[in-house]
Structures are given as C-alpha cells and as structure tokens.
C-alpha cells in the first residue's frame, strides 16, 4: 500500500490495494487481520492507482488509473464504476501519483511522476533526461478533458516527482513529499515542499524542509498534517521511519 487516509468525519481508514485493484475501507481503530467494512473492486471499477484521497463532505473517493483521475462514491461497496473521470490531452495528466482533495475550497491537486514509475527499469541517466514531475491544480468537480487551473513545474519548483500530498484548506496550502530522482538511494534534491493553491508556473515552494543531516530527512515519501499540534509528520523511505516536525509557521 502506498497511501492511507483517515476519514475523521466517519471514523474510517481508507487504503488502495493496487495489486488487487481495490479500495478498502476499515473502521477507525481496526486491528490485526480484521476484514474491511467496504470494498470497491471489479470490472466496472477497473484499475486502481497506488494513491487516493477521501472527501468526507461530498462523500467521494479520488484515485487514478493510467493517466485518468477517477472518482468513486465513498460509501460504494462492490463493483462500481467511477462517477466521473478527468482525462484527455488538455488535462496534462501524465503518470499521476500523488492526489489530494480539499472539499472546503473545492480544489483537487494531482502530483505527477511524469516519466517515472514505469514497470521498465529506469536509470539515473534516464531520469535526468526525461520530463520532470509537476503539481496540477484542478477544481474538485472537474470532469472530462479539462485544463488544470494551475501547473507548478520547472527547475525553480525543485519538483522531480511528487509522492503523497496533503492540503491545508485553512491557508490554501499544498504540502507535498518530493523524494527526488527515483534511482538515487539518497538524492541530494529531496525535500518536503509547501506551495499555495494560487501558485502557477515554475514556482519555488513557500516553505521547504530539505533532506540533510540536520533534518535527518533522506527520502520523504509520505506526509500528513496535525494542525492541532502544528506538526508535519513525514514518512521517509530511506529512514524506514516516521519523522515529526514542529512547524508552527506553516499553520
């Protein structure tokens, strides 16, 4: 599993299982070999991406397959088709990987790995020559072949690829884990970045926690926010662990 979301409104845990092309929902506090309370899976459902997010207000689950963003009813159980999709050349969707939704400001954000994440072997030389990743900003209710309202991409952005993201509706912030070149075990360029919903273009993050000896970050893969304690919680692949930072200035 490469994503996990806690739905605080309904006290549920939602995870994608890409090996079985399924979205599983567990009760909050589930423990041990406990069965899920709902499963979305089947021919109508189709393939499921490695990441997802939950909109507990409008009762929707956002994920992707291939270069298509798919949206399912949150309470669905069984073989259900997506209720809407975003796809097409205008969307600029290319290897989506991170995904996050803000149900308050009606924003959907997609992180791209671009040419990364293929089943084919990719060398360091490849990653340096291929198109870099990006953050695409859509409206939450977008459907079809729509243009993103914002695209953050380019050398100043520092984005090579984007893994898990979180949105902070109160300040309209995008928080994304940028683990750097995929083939490098401890890439110099990795960081946790914070951008604004209004950013568009080759924009550096407003804040960044870089991977270095001081922060102890090496390869940030996941992020979640704890506004109550003004904390950013980061899962780090190369540390095989979780690092908790106090960053009151972001909240």
């Amino acid at each position: 599993m490469h994503d996990v979301r806690y739905d605080a409104v309904h006290d549920e845990i939602v995870v994608p299982v890409p090996y079985a092309q399924a979205i599983l929902t567990f009760r909050g506090g589930a423990d041990g070999q406990e069965a899920p309370i709902r499963i979305i899976q089947g021919p109508k459902t189709g393939a499921i991406g490695s990441r997802l997010d939950v909109d507990p207000i409008h009762n929707e689950i956002f994920t992707y397959t291939g270069n298509t963003v798919t949206v399912y009813p949150r309470e669905a159980n069984g073989d259900v088709a997506p209720i809407r999709v975003i796809r097409g050349p205008d969307t600029q969707l290319k290897r989506p990987y991170g995904i996050a939704v803000d149900p308050i400001n009606d924003i959907l954000v997609i992180g791209l790995n671009s040419n990364f994440g293929s089943d084919e072997p990719i060398t360091v030389e490849d990653t340096e020559s291929l198109e870099k990743g990006a953050i695409l900003i859509f409206n939450r209710t977008d459907s079809g072949n729509v243009k993103p309202r914002g695209v953050i991409r380019g050398p100043k952005s520092g984005i090579i690829r984007i893994n898990q993201m979180q949105l902070y509706p109160q300040k309209k912030l995008i928080v994304g884990a940028m683990p750097g070149v995929i083939d490098s075990m401890e890439p110099d360029s990795a960081f946790l970045g914070v951008w604004s919903y209004d950013d568009n273009g080759d924009i550096p993050p407003k804040w960044k926690i870089p991977a270095n000896d001081r922060t102890k970050l090496k390869k940030p893969f996941g992020v979640v926010l704890n506004p109550k304690n003004k904390e950013v919680i980061i899962s780090d692949m190369r540390n095989q662990g979780v690092l908790v930072f106090s960053v009151p200035e972001v909240f």
Binding site: G28, Q164, I233, S235, D236, V242
Partner: peptide, 22 residues
C-alpha cells in the same frame, strides 16, 4: 517495528495515532 517502504502516512485524530502503510 516492521516499517517497510513507508510510501505514505496518515493520522487518526480521534485516537492520536500515526498510521503507516507498508
């Protein structure tokens, strides 16, 4: 701890628990 390739992290606000998928 059995944390392996933690591609994401979640936070259970009700129980103050950090969720780590492998």
């Amino acid at each position: 701890l059995n944390i392996g390739n933690p591609g994401a992290v979640g936070y259970d606000t009700k129980r103050d628990q950090i969720l780590v998928p492998n």
